[in-house]
Amino acid sequence: MKIWAVYRKELRSYFCSPLAYTVIGVYLALSGYFFSVILVTTKQLIMTGVFANMGLMLVFIAPILTMRLLTAEESEGTMELLLTTPVTVFDIVVGKYLAAFTVFLMGTVLTLSFPLFLCTYGSPDFGPIITGYTGFVLLGGAFLAIGLFMSATTDNQVIAGVLTFGVGLALWIVGWLAEELTGKARDIANHISAVQRYEGFLYGVLDLSDVTYFITIILAFVFLTCFAVIKRNCF
């Protein structure tokens, strides 16, 4: 499978540099801080508040993980070389996306120590924890797909990172804007708001429309990335 060849190469480049470790380390430290402080202050064996903060952290983490994915290939001129091989654009894009997603998943897996801590203290309700992790992984997947797309639109890593951060933040705060609106405008703002979609997961509700929303963002941006790569290198 050509996708896996790209995936392995990309994953190796993540873990051969200190980037992935630093990002995961800082992310774990901040998540751990939120987890400890929320548990000590509320004394409740729930992770709703932790997931909410971890979700917001993704707005900052996703640009760092994705900003070099395709910009590096373009700026170093290796993309053209890649495209002359039997690998399709889809293989390149999906392989790179899956590599970034794997790094994110590794960081997430290490946070499973949080529910383990809760289990040692008592009997938490596992429903909201399971849905919380589901929502968190989907949210991460969506932000990474946006980052991937942004990295395909420019040669500059900083610009790609800033654009990803901007779009991620916009999807986050549009939910706050919804509270000020009325009627259809409010419905639309709520519909596209990542916060509104993510919230249900935090409280233990798995809604197919919320799951579809995140999968749509992932699919749309992965395919848009393919189109952006083709456009930049073909026309």
């Binding site: 309700d125 429903g127 399971i130 849905t131 233990g204 509700v205 798995l206 809604d207 197919l208 429309s209």
Partner: peptide
């Protein structure tokens, strides 16, 4: 067509 699962206790 709303489909949802309530996984709370």
């Amino acid at each position: 067509y709303r489909v949802r699962w309530d996984l709370t206790e």
